[in-house]
Design a protein around this nucleic acid. Structure first.
Length: 278
DNA sequence: ATGTCGGGCTATGCCCGA
């Protein structure tokens, strides 16, 4: 089974490219972020014609997450337990949720499509929200892992954190000043790893960015950032046989500013070593 | 170069978010 994540930056602008890539890359499951539309506006036709079932959580023109799968989808969860909300002038515990997390089970694998808040600037209310959001995500993941020992789960998506210096190649992000590289954000990411989630792509693809800003020739200069990840429980990580960052998807007409990240999983029904398929 | 893209709005440019 091939599972991918992709911040598509508007599915209405990108659906043709998304379907083409899914079919060409033979992807079974795609977690999307920044669909930037309401559920009823999501262009499902091309995906469904290509054999994909689609579940979405889109509230308005901002954020929005979705999962498309060629295998049956069950146990859809809109938002995670304890997910903090956020809205202008509404920063308390009863702030409305944003459409940033969607969970589903596919062929026995729990898959989350996550769009972590950007943070905007150090000290901005959105930055505190980002840290609370990541902390609550870890709490929910830890509770799920305790209740489902050994089970495969992947937290996939745009984490908006560059965990190491090598993951930050955009010179406009300055240590001590900028989001995405601040110690608290990196600690929040490391905390996800400390509860038993593993970046399953990095051991296979140690280099490469997943995002390049549209501005200032960031892609031609390869001044990107590695901020999109697939974090797996041990029961997920043990089945990963290959991984890929689809840099080619940053090229051509109307690309997203992010590229897909995907992994190939061995079947859970046999222990045969699978050949590397990519 | 604040140099690019998305979205909405009531518009044919301006605002917001990334």
């Amino acid at each position: 089974m091939r599972i991918a994540t992709w911040n598509v930056n508007s599915i209405r602008t990108r659906h043709g490219r998304v379907v083409d890539w899914l079919v060409n890359a033979d992807v079974d499951v795609l977690a999307m972020q920044e669909i930037k539309c309401k559920d009823e506006q999501f262009p499902r036709e091309g995906l469904e014609a290509a054999g994909y079932e689609v579940v979405t959580w889109g509230l308005n023109q901002w954020n929005g997450v979705a999962i498309a799968s060629r295998l049956p989808i069950t146990d859809v969860e809109v938002g995670f337990r304890g997910q903090p909300g956020f809205a202008k002038g509404h920063e308390g515990p009863d702030a409305p949720l944003e459409a940033r997390a969607l969970g589903a089970t596919i062929d026995g694998v729990r898959v989350w499509s996550l769009y972590v808040p950007n943070g905007r600037a150090l000290g901005d209310p959105h930055y505190d929200y980002k840290l609370r959001w990541l902390s609550a995500l870890a709490d929910d993941a830890r509770a799920w892992m305790a209740a489902n020992p050994g089970a495969p789960m992947a937290l996939t998506g745009d984490f908006n954190v560059a965990p190491t210096d090598a993951d930050m190649g955009d010179p406009s992000f300055v240590p001590g000043v900028s989001t995405h590289i601040s110690p608290p954000e990196r600690a929040a990411f490391a905390h996800l790893e400390s509860i038993g989630l593993t970046d399953v792509v990095r051991p296979i693809q140690p280099d490469g960015y997943t995002f390049w800003d549209y501005k200032q020739l960031r892609f031609p200069r390869d001044e990107g950032m590695r901020i999109d990840f697939i974090l797996g429980t041990p029961g997920f990580a043990d089945r990963v046989v290959d991984a890929r960052i689809e840099r080619e998807q940053r090229k051509g007409d109307a690309p997203s500013d992010h590229v897909p990240v995907l992994v190939e999983l061995a079947s859970d029904e046999d222990d045969d070593d699978r050949p590397m398929i990519f």
